[in-house]
Amino acid sequence: MISSGPQPVAPFSHAVEAGGFVFITGQMPTDPAAPDAPLPEGIEAQTRRVIDNLKLILGGIGLGLEHVTMARIYLTEFQRDYAALNAMWPSFFEVGKLPARTTVGVTALAVGALVEIDLIARRP
């Protein structure tokens, strides 16, 4: 667990490392400083918050987004939010170095979130 990371919404570890790979549990758009605060409005704001939370987890184990090899994204409003997510996604990574990615439409997410993202990273 990363002490500065978001409060878990279920029983899990923020990250688990095995054989040089780090598996980061799906993060929600909650505010680590105010876990009961309302979620940000809209897919862009929620995605930015999720990425910020993932960066906290990665930073807590000495890694960053540049170490991400795979991302899984879950959207509750796939048709509505997919294009907006795609438009902002490259801004989180170095040009030409996007991780592999799967995006899945789901019926619901914890805490009423629009987006959840989990990652696989590799320690250099």
Score class of each variant (00 low, 15 high):
116 E>H: 08
97 K>D: 00
76 T>W: 00
8 P>A: 02
80 R>T: 00
121 A>R: 07
15 A>W: 00
3 S>E: 03
19 G>V: 04
6 P>S: 10
94 E>D: 08
13 S>H: 09
61 I>G: 06
11 P>S: 08
122 R>G: 01
18 A>P: 02
112 G>I: 06
26 G>I: 02
35 P>I: 00
79 Q>V: 05
94 E>N: 13
95 V>S: 08
104 V>Q: 11
38 P>W: 03
89 W>P: 04
101 R>D: 10
67 H>W: 13
34 A>E: 06
117 I>N: 03
70 M>W: 10
122 R>K: 14
81 D>E: 05
114 L>E: 14
54 L>R: 13
105 G>T: 05
73 I>H: 10
92 F>E: 08
98 L>A: 04
115 V>C: 10
46 Q>R: 12
118 D>H: 04
36 D>Q: 13
25 T>I: 05
93 F>Y: 09
120 I>V: 06
62 G>V: 08
32 P>S: 06
40 P>G: 03
68 V>N: 01
66 E>T: 04
122 R>S: 03
73 I>F: 12
65 L>W: 11
61 I>N: 07
20 G>H: 07
94 E>I: 08
13 S>I: 12
45 A>N: 13
23 F>W: 14
58 L>Y: 02
56 L>M: 07
46 Q>D: 13
39 L>A: 03
95 V>N: 04
98 L>M: 14
21 F>L: 09
13 S>P: 11
84 A>D: 02
117 I>V: 14
71 A>T: 10
8 P>I: 03
114 L>T: 05
114 L>G: 09
64 G>H: 14
50 V>W: 06
101 R>F: 01
95 V>Q: 13
6 P>K: 02
4 S>E: 05
107 T>C: 08
81 D>K: 02
2 I>P: 09
107 T>M: 08
55 K>S: 14
66 E>N: 13
13 S>E: 11
107 T>G: 14
12 F>N: 13
35 P>C: 00
97 K>R: 15
26 G>D: 10
28 M>D: 01
31 D>Q: 07
62 G>P: 09
92 F>L: 11
40 P>Y: 00
71 A>E: 04
39 L>R: 00
89 W>D: 07
96 G>W: 15
25 T>G: 06
11 P>M: 07
60 G>H: 08
97 K>Q: 06
81 D>P: 13
9 V>W: 15
92 F>A: 03
32 P>N: 10
91 S>I: 06
77 E>N: 14
45 A>H: 12
22 V>Y: 02
122 R>W: 14
81 D>C: 06
93 F>K: 01
40 P>F: 00
44 E>Q: 13
33 A>T: 11
82 Y>E: 04
